[in-house]
Simulated assay, not measured.
Amino acid sequence: MKTVNVYIVRHGETIFNTLDKLQGWADSPLTDKGIQLAIDTGNTLSNVHFNSAYASDMKRAIDTAKLILKPNKYLSHLNGELPEFREAFFGLFEGLDNMSSWKSIATPYGASTQAEMLEEVSPLVVRDRMKKADPTGLAENGEEFITRIHHGFNQIFDSSADNDNVLIVSHGTLIRALAIQYGDSSMDPVHEFPLNGGITKIIVGPNKLTVTEYNQTSI
């Protein structure tokens, strides 16, 4: 049975990260630290024989991917920029304070943080709750979020050969959701948000995802 090995990496630190602002389809540039984190991740992955590489179409992900590929011994260019691997869309909450926004979303459910909600419900239900709290109705719901992600993985699976290694540079909430949905009990993505530059490994099969490693800084 054909499988594809995906190394999915969170982008480097950005200005919005340092300000603790929600950053989904909004974008902000990498900081100097973020650039260095991307370089460090590239050095960690330099000996991985990548057959292809993709980034979400957010500039912070594209810039990170290019820095990661620079020292790679086998692949030096991106094969594409895929909107399917964008961060979740936070609607009205884009660019707002992270802590206070999640408190306002979580309070009706007897919680005060996103993590407290994730202890009780799936990431897709949390997406539904954010959409419900967004008076503009623009935030992505759970079905919209997971459907586009699966579409992205299907594209990569169909365009890859058996046992190919694929790099994807994406975003924290997306990677965390995948780890919760498709990881195992040895991981704790509910309480451990992906690091900037953190590496998560996923085996992609026909209509199947299996997260085998989460949020690593070495391989």
Score class of each variant (00 low, 15 high):
56 S>Q: 04
33 K>S: 09
71 P>L: 02
146 I>Q: 10
34 G>T: 11
129 R>C: 00
103 K>R: 15
155 Q>T: 12
90 F>M: 03
84 E>V: 04
101 S>W: 02
86 R>S: 06
62 I>T: 13
165 N>Y: 11
157 F>W: 15
65 A>N: 02
4 V>C: 06
79 N>M: 10
160 S>V: 07
63 D>W: 04
32 D>Q: 14
93 F>R: 10
134 D>I: 02
103 K>V: 00
86 R>H: 06
75 L>D: 06
213 E>K: 15
188 D>N: 15
129 R>S: 01
99 M>H: 13
35 I>S: 06
211 V>L: 15
132 K>C: 00
61 A>G: 12
151 H>Y: 12
160 S>Q: 03
164 D>W: 01
46 S>W: 04
31 T>Q: 03
33 K>P: 00
179 A>T: 00
44 T>Y: 00
213 E>F: 12
131 K>M: 14
83 P>G: 08
171 H>W: 10
32 D>C: 08
72 N>Q: 09
85 F>I: 00
35 I>D: 07
142 G>T: 06
86 R>P: 01
191 H>N: 15
166 V>N: 01
65 A>G: 10
108 P>S: 03
212 T>Y: 02
84 E>H: 12
58 M>Y: 14
43 N>H: 11
1 M>D: 11
102 W>E: 03
198 G>A: 00
121 V>A: 08
150 H>A: 08
208 K>S: 15
79 N>Y: 07
93 F>S: 02
207 N>Q: 14
49 H>Q: 15
108 P>Q: 03
122 S>C: 04
57 D>K: 06
199 I>H: 07
188 D>S: 11
209 L>V: 10
165 N>L: 05
